[in-house]
């Protein structure tokens, strides 16, 4: 049984990390990061089977790939707090000579990152490759992927979605961050995604919703159900209904904070809504 108090404390601390990272360099993407904080915390601390020491090939453990690389602040915070690199290194986010590039990369050797992402639409393909390698290696572990909903406007996703179903890549769980927002506005206004559940199902995926995508318990139980669906011949898609900017009242329910940092006053307000739990870096 998960220690939800500890996970909740971590969620709040990760929110602080996200806000402080983007505030310091006056750039970065807090909205999507905050919206996926509970998912990342649950994934890395409750759901994935991970080895203690990072290896690029990840043999004998579950792997995660972040397709929408712009939500790097949440990825970095959760990786650091899971022990992949020193938490203090979050201080270097987006600075010159940092391993914490604006978008995640392997290029600077940051433990926990296995592929560069940022140019959208490539993560599902990479995940399929990693999943196929797991099968060839007779490694029963899973591949987890997160992609944005707006990101599904990139055509390469649908090549990948078609391939995974057509080739029974059933050791793969792709989670779509369904927050309904993208840079220019709501996905409905920019380019409607239509019925994603029906689309994934039509391509041959096993699809499920997690309606409360910012609720740790709902995420853990939902993702465990998703895990049970693996190994049955179909790739698994989880539609995670989230609120962009979750946990900071003035950042919620809008696309305004997709790629904008809070000013000093806004940071103070946002942090006051998320008081220190585990200690700031």
């Amino acid at each position: 049984m998960a220690d939800y108090k500890a996970l909740e404390d971590l969620v709040i601390q990760v929110r602080r990390d996200i806000l402080r990272q983007v505030h310091k360099v006056n750039s970065g993407h807090p909205g999507g990061s905050l919206g996926c904080t509970e998912f990342f915390v649950a994934l890395y601390n409750e759901l994935m089977e991970r080895n203690e020491n990072f290896t690029m090939d990840g043999i004998g453990e579950d792997l995660f790939f972040l397709s929408n690389g712009h939500i790097s602040p949440v990825f970095y915070s959760v990786l650091a707090r899971a022990g992949y690199f020193p938490v203090e290194e979050l201080n270097t986010f987006r600075l010159l000579n940092s391993r914490l590039q604006g978008h995640p990369t392997t290029h600077e050797g940051l433990p926990g990152v296995r592929i560069a992402s940022g140019s959208l639409g490539q993560g599902i393909s990479v995940s399929i490759g990693a999943a196929l390698a797991k099968k060839l290696n007779k490694d029963k572990h899973l591949i987890y992927t997160l992609c944005g909903d707006g990101e599904l406007q990139e055509g390469q996703n649908w090549e990948a979605i078609m391939y995974a179903a057509g080739n029974n890549v059933d050791n793969l769980i792709v989670t779509v961050d369904l927050n309904g927002q993208q840079i220019d506005g709501s996905t409905k206004n920019v380019l409607p995604l239509g019925n994603l559940k029906a689309k994934f199902e039509a391509f041959g995926w096993d699809v499920m919703d997690i309606e409360k995508g910012n609720d740790l318990k709902a995420i853990v139980s939902g993702m465990k159900k998703a895990k049970e669906k693996t190994g049955n011949g179909k790739p698994v898609c989880v539609l995670l209904h989230t609120v962009m900017g979750n946990g900071v009242d003035f950042m919620m329910h809008t696309h305004d904070w997709h790629g904008k940092a809070p000013n000093d006053q806004q940071l103070e307000t946002a942090l006051s809504q998320n008081p220190v739990t585990l200690g700031d870096y």
């Binding site: 690029m56 090939d57 990840g58 043999i59 792997l63 790939f65 296995r114 592929i115 639409g121 490539q122 993560g123 599902i124 393909s125 990479v126 995940s127 399929i128 490759g129 990693a130 999943a131 196929l132 390698a133 797991k134 060839l136 290696n137 490694d139 055509g155 390469q156 090549e159 990948a160 078609m162 391939y163 057509g166 080739n167």
Partner: peptide
């Protein structure tokens, strides 16, 4: 078992190849 027909989807092919290297394969 080591041949992968990707279909007419070159972008996906490159991504899958990149992912396979992570499991130690030489695509």
């Amino acid at each position: 078992d080591r041949f992968f027909q990707i279909g007419i989807a070159e972008a996906n092919m490159i991504g899958i190849a990149a992912g396979m290297t992570i499991g130690g394969k030489i695509p």
